[in-house]
Computed example of a mutant assay.
Amino acid sequence: MVTRRPMPYTFTPAQINDLEAVLSPPRFGTYLHETGGDRHRAMELYCWNTDVSAAFYVMLQYCELAIRNGAVEAIESEFGPNWHWNLGFRHSLPKHKGKKNYQPAEDLKTCTNKHPTAGKVVADLKFVFWHGRKV
């Protein structure tokens, strides 16, 4: 049970029904469980969770930038400033089985062909690209 009461929000029963439908019953059910079945408090808790998540967003953006820039610095020291064009680097990227799995080499190729500079490529690559890179 939630020990702290979230910030007060005002919802009509119709708004709660509409928002519950948007969230989906399983998702809203998590919040209902935490509030002992109180639908209004469940919606307050959901909104509070959204507010808390939003508060972390800026810090997470800076963290992501620091990770990407650190990775690029390490890659550039090994493959040079035009690392995004380096076929040796591209071939060193992992290949995941299955069409639905993320393919970093394909993402790099797409971004490199779309953007003129390494900086633009870095900004366009998915964050998962930087996961587990070893240089």
Score class of each variant (00 low, 15 high):
Val2His: 09
Arg27Leu: 14
Ile67His: 12
Leu125Tyr: 00
Lys134Val: 08
Trp85Cys: 13
His91Met: 10
Lys97Val: 09
His131Trp: 13
Asp124Tyr: 02
Arg4Met: 15
Pro13Leu: 04
Ala14Leu: 03
Thr117Ser: 04
Ala54Pro: 07
Met43Leu: 07
Val122Tyr: 02
Ile75Gln: 00
Ala118Tyr: 10
His33Pro: 03
His96Glu: 09
Asn69Lys: 06
Leu65Asp: 13
Ala42Lys: 01
Ser24Gln: 14
Pro116Cys: 04
Lys99Val: 08
Thr35Ile: 03
Thr30Arg: 13
Lys114Ser: 05
His40Asn: 08
Ala71Glu: 10
Val72Leu: 00
Val122Phe: 07
Ala74Ser: 13
Lys99Tyr: 08
Glu20Gln: 15
Arg27Asp: 08
Leu23Gly: 01
Leu32Phe: 02
Asn17Phe: 06
Val58Asn: 10
Phe127Thr: 12
Lys120Ile: 03
Tyr102Pro: 07
Pro26Lys: 05
Trp85Glu: 12
Ala14Ser: 11
Ala71Ser: 11
Gly132Lys: 10
Thr110Pro: 02
Ala123Lys: 13
Ala105Val: 03
His84Ile: 05
Ser92Cys: 08
Gly80His: 05
Asn101Glu: 13
Lys126Glu: 13
Arg41Leu: 14
Val52Asn: 01
His40Met: 02
Gly70Asn: 08
Ala118Cys: 13
Glu73Asn: 15
Ala14Tyr: 08
Arg39Thr: 06
Arg5Tyr: 09
Pro116Lys: 14
Lys120Gln: 15
Phe56Lys: 07
Ile16Arg: 06
Thr110Leu: 09
Arg5Glu: 08
Val58Glu: 15
Leu19Pro: 00
Lys114Ala: 14
Thr50Ser: 13
Ala74Thr: 09
Val122Asn: 07
Leu19Ala: 09
Ser53Ala: 13
Gln15Phe: 03
Ala118Trp: 07
Leu125Ser: 03
Val58Lys: 11
Ala42Pro: 06
Lys100Phe: 10
Phe79Cys: 03
Gly98Pro: 04
Tyr9Leu: 14
Gln15Cys: 05
Arg4Ser: 12
Ala74Val: 08
Ala123Gly: 08
Ala105Thr: 03
Cys111Lys: 14
Trp83Arg: 07
Trp130His: 02
Glu76Met: 15
Val52Asp: 09
Val72Ala: 12
Leu45Asp: 04
Met59Gln: 15
Arg4Tyr: 14
Met59Trp: 10
Pro6Ala: 04
Gly70Met: 04
His33Gly: 02
Tyr102Ser: 01
Ala42Gln: 05
Ala105Trp: 08
Tyr62Arg: 15
Tyr62Glu: 13
Ala105Asp: 10
Val58Trp: 11
Thr3Gly: 15
Val52Gly: 04
Ala42Met: 06
Ile16Trp: 06
Ala105Cys: 06
Trp130Glu: 06
Lys114Val: 01
